[in-house]
């Protein structure tokens, strides 16, 4: 019979520290030809992948509004039809050539990140209701003791955002705005992440 209960416990987290880039984005910080010249997560899609091309940029800020210049941001999302590139998603095959996963060091001068990706389709919540399209974010940095999960929703999806099972359940409706990107121009979104203080981003325990 399968073991049903927890018999071990998750290893404690420790901060990624200021040098996370050596391990995760070595080419970005000038360790040339590390892993044959390519950092994992540099590109989310190949040419020819269907879907609406978008840019998602932003900055991570600390509690006094200073950009976090030594952090790392990862994103994970469904393809344009709402399918994940994972064997755990048994509903169908996601777009070939779409990884769904991106990773960037925040810029050492500005703290900015910028992903080129595809606008995700809607995906089901646990009860089968559909969720508004979103991109999952995971943020680590020096001073962050446990990686932070959040989600970015789209400003041009007001109706679906209003009905979204996660957004509509937030106790403090005024915080919903921290999860919704702003529109810079067509297909170009901005999602700033505030670790602490005024406008603190909603982070999730998943």
């Amino acid at each position: 019979m399968a073991i049903r209960s927890r018999v071990l416990h998750e290893t404690p987290s420790q901060t990624a520290g200021p040098f996370v880039h050596i391990g995760c984005t070595p080419n970005r910080i000038g360790l040339a030809y590390a892993y044959r010249g390519q950092d994992l997560g540099e590109r989310l899609f190949d040419n020819g992948v269907p879907g609406q091309r978008i840019v998602v940029e932003g900055c991570v800020f600390d509690g006094i509004g200073t950009p976090v210049k030594d952090g790392m941001v990862e994103i994970w999302q469904a393809d344009h039809k709402g399918l994940f590139n994972s064997p755990q998603d048994r509903r169908g095959q996601s777009s070939l050539g779409f990884s769904g996963w991106g990773r960037q060091a925040t810029d050492p001068e500005t703290g900015e990140f910028s992903f080129r990706t595809i606008k995700p389709g809607e995906t089901p919540f646990v009860d089968g209701r559909m969720q508004a399209p979103f991109i999952s974010f995971w943020i680590v940095a020096r001073g962050v003791n446990l990686g932070l999960h959040t989600r970015m929703y789209f400003p041009d999806e007001a109706e679906r955002n209003r009905q979204d099972p996660v957004l509509s359940k937030l106790e403090h409706a005024c915080r919903i705005q921290t999860l919704i990107a702003s529109c810079v121009s067509d297909n170009h979104y901005r999602f700033d992440i505030r670790l602490q203080g005024e406008g603190e981003t909603v982070f999730f325990d998943v």
């Binding site: 994970w76 998603d89 646990v126 999952s136 962050v144 106790e171 670790l195 602490q196 603190e200 999730f204």
Partner: peptide, 22 residues
Amino acid sequence: VRSPKLALVSIPNSLSELTGPV
């Protein structure tokens, strides 16, 4: 200055958390 002050919002795992890059 890098620690969220507000409580994390607990949400059940849907496919976005059950899946991940391979």
